[in-house]
Nucleic acid binder design. Sequence first.
DNA 1: CTTAAAATTTAGGTTACCCAAAATTTATTT
DNA 2: AAATAAATTTTGGGTAACCTAAATTTTAAG
Lengths: 218, 218
Amino acid sequence: MTISVTEENYLKAIFSATYVSESRVGNQLIAEKLSINPASVTEMLRKLDDKKLIEYNRSSGAKLTKDGQKAALNVIRKHRLWETFLVEHLNFTWDQVHEVAEQLEHIQSDKLLDELASFLGNPEFDPHGDPIPDKHGKMPVVKSSNLSNAAIGKKLKVVKVGDNTASFLKYLDKQGIALGDILTIKEVQDFDRSVLVELKGKKEVYLSAGAAEKIMVI
Amino acid sequence: MTISVTEENYLKAIFSATYVSESRVGNQLIAEKLSINPASVTEMLRKLDDKKLIEYNRSSGAKLTKDGQKAALNVIRKHRLWETFLVEHLNFTWDQVHEVAEQLEHIQSDKLLDELASFLGNPEFDPHGDPIPDKHGKMPVVKSSNLSNAAIGKKLKVVKVGDNTASFLKYLDKQGIALGDILTIKEVQDFDRSVLVELKGKKEVYLSAGAAEKIMVI
DNA sequence: CTTAAAATTTAGGTTACCCAAAATTTATTT
DNA sequence: AAATAAATTTTGGGTAACCTAAATTTTAAG
């Protein structure tokens, strides 16, 4: 039973929508994530249900089955491994990888995937700090939290970005913030919840609440 | 003006059919190369003609325009660079690369292509000895010839295989023949034109005329 | 120059996606 | 519980590729 590129993209969308809250997704949200019309979603969800990749019913929405989750995680694994490859070996920056990885994630070859992973040293995290599922779909868990929830004086390590858009990533570059950096909260403004952080013990930077929310630290 | 995956495959097929003899191809041969029905070819050739990627007319067949040739060579460049990558860095054997490269050749990213080429050291030949077009579509020319045309006593170097099917490549592996090997013609049988060759100054191997025809040497 | 064979095109379908607008179902509010 | 709002599905259409079978051309042979 083969899964088409379009189907893989639906599975990914459903995965990302249900991953956090464990609940189900409606047509609308799926349509939004895939930039298509909600009307188009219905028939595909039926097809995925027929294929036993999702459980679907009109009122409560869609949810991945075990098989569907496995398929989704495999696509995500490929996506994140390719992103890692692009950054570590082909001089891509973290804001340049997404588009290309969206294509590469659909290449079908078990050997390619295995060899790519081992070529990269079986990495556990991609260039954005997102966990890379292993062969069996298992992902390393890191209980990171928002920079915006941090207390003054805390020394924290940046481990992940909560927004992979090129614009946010370039913004972080401009601020000089990268994965692995250590930073300390110096001030938290009451009126707008923006924070002042000290970067690597050197310069200080102001971050809006919105930006701080998207910087994940431990 | 974007070129779809299907269109790229048509361009490749037309390229490979017209490359040697410089003439034009008919629907039939294109259909055969793409494993589709000849009747399906007509409309696509019209579309490619509209896009000015080929010149087409019912009686003399199809031929690439400058733009079409450029597009075809770009796909071939990608295909052969990926094959090189797979063999040199991901432990693929030369009989395993084709299928995957058929998928990878359609990934669209100028940066990816440039960086891949330079990561590989801008190779001029792929794992089968086929020339890799450069950025501008220029290919290194090597005037190699059939092993079956060789005279007795000649010392020759294997530079290319004339048949990239997995079965032939595995056959060569079994015979111990690889790209770069030096071999000497010891005998040519009159009755079936099979040849006896000495491999790397060591063992001797009998090759059928059919096999010898597919081993390119200089 | 006629005719048979080969190649190409036409005509009518199919499948996998997608859309807009209308109709229906489900959820929320009063 | 009825009215309204929101989400979903249906309907009717569209596009890109593909197919088969039946014309129609073109080419090649006598």
